[in-house]
C-alpha cells in the first residue's frame, strides 16, 4: 500500500484517535503512517456493535415482560455471549443459561450473584435491578 492510499476516513469507532500502518513512501521504502481509520473497519465494527445492541434490547424487553432474568441484558451490555460469560464466571454454560430464567435467578445465593457482579464490574443492586432509563 502506498502511503497516499492509507485510509483517512476519520471513522467514529476511533473516536478521534489514530492507529498506524506500514506503507510505502515516495521512494518505495516502508514507513509507519498514521491512519484515522478505514470505512471498511467502521462497517464491520458497527455491524458487530449493532448486533450486540439488538440482542441487548431484546433481552431488556424480555426481562420487562418477565420472560428473562436481568442477566442476559448485562451480558450483552458488556459485549459478551454465553460462552464468554461462562468462561469469565467459571460457571458451566448450561448453568449460565439456567440463570436466565427469572425464577432461578431470583433464588440465587449472594455468592453466585457476587460472581456475576464482579465479572460485569457492577454492584449487586445494579445486577438485580435494571434502571428504568436503560435501553
Amino acid at each position: 500500500m502506498d502511503s497516499r492510499d492509507v485510509p483517512q476516513d476519520q471513522i467514529p469507532v476511533f473516536a478521534g484517535h489514530s492507529k498506524a500502518v506500514y506503507a510505502l513512501d515516495s521512494h518505495g521504502d516502508y514507513t509507519l503512517v498514521p491512519t484515522s481509520g478505514w470505512e471498511v473497519e467502521e462497517i464491520v465494527t458497527r455491524q458487530a456493535l449493532d448486533e450486540l445492541a439488538r440482542q441487548r434490547r431484546q433481552a431488556l424487553a424480555d426481562h420487562r415482560a418477565g420472560r428473562l432474568s436481568p442477566l442476559p441484558y448485562h451480558m450483552y451490555d458488556k459485549k459478551m455471549d454465553v460462552a464468554t460469560l461462562a468462561r469469565e464466571s467459571g460457571f458451566w454454560q448450561w448453568r449460565v443459561r439456567r440463570h436466565f430464567r427469572p425464577a432461578v435467578f431470583n433464588k440465587l445465593s449472594l455468592t453466585t450473584l457476587a460472581v456475576y457482579a464482579e465479572v460485569f464490574g457492577i454492584s449487586l443492586t445494579e445486577l438485580q435491578r435494571i434502571d428504568d432509563a436503560r435501553d
Binding site: Y22, W38, V40, E41, V44, Q47, A48
Partner: peptide, 20 residues
C-alpha cells in the same frame, strides 16, 4: 464481517500483517 474484524481490528491484522 468477523473475518475482516479479525483482519483489521484485533491487532490491525490481515493486510496489516502482510505489510508488516
Amino acid at each position: 464481517g468477523n473475518i475482516i474484524r479479525m483482519q483489521e481490528e484485533i491487532g490491525t491484522g490481515g493486510a496489516g500483517f502482510r505489510f508488516l
